[in-house]
Write a protein that binds this DNA or RNA. Sequence first.
DNA 1: TATGAATGAGGATTCATTCAT
DNA 2: AATGAATGAATCCTCATTCAT
Lengths: 198, 198, 198, 198
Amino acid sequence: MTRFSDRQKEIINESLNLIANSGIQNLTIKNLSKAVNISEPAIYRHFTDKMDILMSIVTYLTMSEKWILKKVLASGPSALDQIKGFFIEHFRQIVADRNSTVLRCSEALLQHDPRLSQKIIAMMHLSRDALNNIVEQGQQTGEIRTDISAKQLTIIIMGALRFLITSWQQSAYDFDLEAEGEKQVKAIRKMIINGGNR
Amino acid sequence: MTRFSDRQKEIINESLNLIANSGIQNLTIKNLSKAVNISEPAIYRHFTDKMDILMSIVTYLTMSEKWILKKVLASGPSALDQIKGFFIEHFRQIVADRNSTVLRCSEALLQHDPRLSQKIIAMMHLSRDALNNIVEQGQQTGEIRTDISAKQLTIIIMGALRFLITSWQQSAYDFDLEAEGEKQVKAIRKMIINGGNR
Amino acid sequence: MTRFSDRQKEIINESLNLIANSGIQNLTIKNLSKAVNISEPAIYRHFTDKMDILMSIVTYLTMSEKWILKKVLASGPSALDQIKGFFIEHFRQIVADRNSTVLRCSEALLQHDPRLSQKIIAMMHLSRDALNNIVEQGQQTGEIRTDISAKQLTIIIMGALRFLITSWQQSAYDFDLEAEGEKQVKAIRKMIINGGNR
Amino acid sequence: MTRFSDRQKEIINESLNLIANSGIQNLTIKNLSKAVNISEPAIYRHFTDKMDILMSIVTYLTMSEKWILKKVLASGPSALDQIKGFFIEHFRQIVADRNSTVLRCSEALLQHDPRLSQKIIAMMHLSRDALNNIVEQGQQTGEIRTDISAKQLTIIIMGALRFLITSWQQSAYDFDLEAEGEKQVKAIRKMIINGGNR
DNA sequence: TATGAATGAGGATTCATTCAT
DNA sequence: AATGAATGAATCCTCATTCAT
């Protein structure tokens, strides 16, 4: 498991801020060193490369995503509850720190470099697969409807989660993401629960 | 209505290709002129600025999105069919020309500049609002379940559409988007139809 | 004698305006063609080169200066009156058309190219020598004091004339150049007249 | 008070040389970096901008002009001597370093930009006003004739000084500026002294 | 650990000029 | 006589990175 020094964490954090606020094309060593309040060469004490920074960002985001997944899976046996947790935990984190989230910055990093993209995609698969697992288990236990495949249900859940976050960001954070998220989870629950209330 | 010359269209198209293939940070005037096979200064005969190019890209994508929406709305009275059309048309276009789609390149352009972002967000609202309208009408005619608000249903539909496209791209186009899309629409239909088969 | 077509005169004139208003570095073919309201290549119908334009400007200014000198010399026999005329005529012209004057734009053209500089210097010598002549004749006729050499007197007269114009321009033309000029001539007259009023 | 580093001084100095030898349009970052013998980007370690360089040049020239004025005013109580000093000091400096003089390069910088022009004009007013003061005091003490206003006398003195320098430059420095200057001062002295020798 | 100074490569853009029409 | 499209060379400036200190 990779360990980041305090300075490295600081640099990663400011990188995420820069990306979130003004796009990757503004993630320059100059801007970064200004944000961290050290000189440009000093950055190279902590990372060998700009690519090293980018890779570390993804490593960091992956760790953070794994942490969320762990928490969700540990939350209880019910698939529907886990799905709810999946939403809640992502929203909680993103609200706590708007930038430090997979779903926030990863797109921006894609296409920068094949190695980097691969790592990001791996990270995205991580949560998609975890969610898919949850859904499948929910179907096996009879909690979740089985007339729609787990794959399709997963796409719906992941899509809604991502779209909500995207919308929140594009609206300049001017609605209560956690509240809206909860409504959305309820809607999804209604739609995927086995023998829904009709 | 903005009119683009042939050269302008060519430049916009190659810009979309460049963004799609290697990210905006590779959309340089040099790369662009190489792609269009003219000299760098020649670009400036057709656009005043790089920003002018970016804005024109968004204008172009907006026009293209409007075209899709028009087609979808003209396809018939059924909301469920229109939603199906919404998926199909987007997929058809994206498969025909992988890059010329709102949902493909717009994120990359965000955060580049406030004016540009605003234009992109306006474009995104366009399709979201159109979809929301369709859903509401479907609820009024009784086609679509009413126990979940149109807003939530719209998020689910838009989210799934976008996530499917994202996945397709991240997989390097290695599944049949239109086929998967059709499956997904059916799943969604099942979930949102009034008095579903249970 | 060089003859300029109407279009050539127009181009020369607009060139002078551009130089006067925003410096030579803004005398570009683009700006020029915009000012003349024709296309850029059209400029090359009338001048072979940018250098050709610059040379023509100097030719034009030289002609204009010669015209002034001719008028001054024809104005009467008195050296003091001719000196007064030298001031008056320059000011009159410069006020009528702020830019079409040797003393206005020539410095800006210097150093651009040896051939050009030479031509400008020749033009400047023209008026300086003419003035020197006038002074010498005034000294011979006893009108002008002889205890100071014609050369020194000429420097004083030319210097004052030029400095006044420079000041006027730098003040954004916010004083009455002709009125101030007249005062200045009177002062000079007092200083150079033979047996002044003491 | 602005402080320039050694490198900054070097860059300013070479800028003045470039302007003096080949005009502002040849004051390019490339030429400048070649003259200073560093790379182009290195220039930007020392100045934020080209405009920053230009402004610094004017700051430098202003400082140098102030230095001269201080020296002149400190040279003794006689207005006529101070005027003589005004000439001598300017000539001495200009001969020592042909380029480092207000009167040499400032015109070239005018019209480049309003902020710059303003700064140059302020600098020019500085010496004109100082000279005007000297003349007025000379009139009050009875040293200088009072039948001509200080303003007109100042124009004559400044004009002669400037014109002499201009002529020297245009002649490619092929006369002894200090010697000619001294003659000119004597002539001026004769013309402005109270109760001249007639 | 940190920095001031430097740089090669490349960024967007403008220049004077040409050519086919 | 005029233009739309094009270009090679040069413009200012920023990039990631290195090195001596």
